[in-house]
Design a protein around this nucleic acid. Structure first.
Lengths: 123, 123
DNA sequence: AATAGTGTTCTACTTTTCTATTACACTATA
DNA sequence: TATAGTGTAATAGAAAAGTAGAACACTATT
């Protein structure tokens, strides 16, 4: 995984896990790899992984069983809410940014469709 | 100006200036406030302002005249290119993020239009 | 009971960012 | 030619994030 050095790594790890959970890549109730294994996979220190996971436990997106492992919550309403929260946040940020560049609502939609058209074309 | 403590302040200052330049709030050739004044306005250290500005000089978005001041470039093609670069980057990031959440192209456009509808309604 | 695998916590160190302060370099103008 | 206003640079210190390594706590299995 590549990291943006402008943003704390633990924060980027959280976001990556959020995405994998919402996408269903990590199913409700599924056990995560061991923290030491995750640290190896991400080429990062155990403490950095731990910080990301412990925050997600606090947020009740994960549950932790000492001596056993970390697990994705079984409460699917939490996951749905997470998806909503993330996508709404992303859209809000884009809207704010493009508005600051003085793009109108119509121009914003057009720019996105234009982006999609050129992106899919090249595949 | 409020800062996000997850991102370096000098970086956020750069982005704020980018936006003000692209929006025309700071016109081509216009003189910026003195670095010490900007530091006061932003309640930040002079060096932090200086770091933001010097990077923008390197990028040729600003020009600097020692003993005189910092100025927005007069080269409007640079500004247009900057606007393109920023908006494309923002859209690309949104697209990547929402795709990671398994939203299709159509769902992405719909979600944005839905967002715009509810936002404008409340005004 | 022993052991291996797991989460958790702690301390020490490094790097980056930001602040504080001072000094230096240049320009315009009184 | 002073002087005020400007950009530029350098040093030192504080705070936050990350790394490294070790130790501790708990669980399941043998």
């Amino acid at each position: 995984m590549e990291f943006d050095d402008k943003i704390p790594i633990y924060y980027q790890i959280k976001n990556d896990l959020y995405h994998r959970i919402v996408a269903g890549d990590l199913a409700p109730g599924e056990k995560l790899p061991a923290v030491r294994q995750l640290a190896v996979d991400l080429t990062v220190n155990v403490n950095t992984v731990q910080r990301a996971l412990s925050e997600m436990v606090t947020e009740q997106v994960l549950t932790s069983k000492r001596g056993v492992g970390n697990f994705v919550t079984q409460d699917t309403t939490k996951i749905t809410a997470l998806k909503q929260r993330l996508s709404h946040g992303y859209i809000e940020r884009l809207y704010t940014q493009l508005h600051a560049l003085r793009l109108s609502d119509g121009e914003i939609v057009a720019a996105i469709q234009e982006y999609m058209a050129t992106t899919n074309e090249e595949e």
